[in-house]
């Protein structure tokens, strides 16, 4: 059993205890369940959230049905052109005859303004929204298995390190600003943050 899994188990036990003091907190992980070192953990969280809220990541982690475009030559952040949406089936892969993968292939277009690419290009589920969310909101979401794809923080970390679509954020193709740091740095920041009790900012 990893540290992270133990931490989650502890959180569940705490939740079952239904301490009224923590009723308003993120439900899955209780900061106080193990030793929480906010001083150590919060700087790590800041590194993580700088990645998650970066347009390369947040533009496809939206609450509504529409991926966003932003960056040089795209004006202020705007809805992806061409009436692109999550898809009538809710899959995040687009609609009949106009799937994300009609244009977004397994690698980036080498052309400026060409479609970026990575395997299985699609929109994250709505409950994983980061776009225009506060650091505290993203933090609560990422720790909540109900809203993070049923992952432990350990699994979140390895997902960030190993998933090719996530990894695209650091190699986004010509003309696009990459997410800060690297996949590996972000993985390690998540580990350190978790080890510090995964503290969330007040807001």
């Amino acid at each position: 059993m990893t540290v992270l899994a133990r931490l989650l188990t502890a959180a569940v036990i705490t939740m079952l205890a239904a301490s009224p003091v923590h009723a308003q907190d993120a439900p899955a992980v209780d900061d106080d369940a193990i030793a929480v070192d906010r001083e150590k953990g919060l700087p790590e969280w800041d590194k993580i959230v700088a990645v998650l809220s970066h347009p390369r990541c947040a533009n496809c982690h939206v609450e509504d049905a529409y991926p966003r475009w932003s960056g040089a030559h795209y004006g202020t952040t705007r809805i992806h052109a061409f009436n692109i949406s999550r898809g009538e089936d809710g899959s995040g892969f687009g609609n009949a005859a106009l799937r994300c993968t009609s244009c977004h292939f397994s690698s980036n277009s080498s052309k400026l303004h060409g479609p970026p690419g990575a395997p299985l290009w699609h929109l994250a589920p709505a409950e994983m929204a980061w776009w225009q969310k506060s650091s505290a909101e993203i933090c609560a979401q990422i720790k909540d298995p109900e809203r993070n794809g049923g992952r432990t923080l350990d699994e979140v970390a390895t997902h960030v390190r190993d998933d090719p679509l996530v990894g695209w954020g650091w190699v986004p193709g010509p003309g696009r600003e990459p997410a800060p740091g690297s996949a590996d740095e972000t993985f390690r920041a998540i580990e350190r943050w978790a080890a510090a009790g995964a503290p969330c900012p007040a807001d």
């Binding site: 475009w69 030559h73 795209y74 004006g75 052109a81 061409f82 009436n83 303004h113």
Partner: peptide
Amino acid sequence: AEQSNFHDYDAMRIH
């Protein structure tokens, strides 16, 4: 000219 392609110089679409 600042615009260069249909991403920043689009036209009406079917929808």
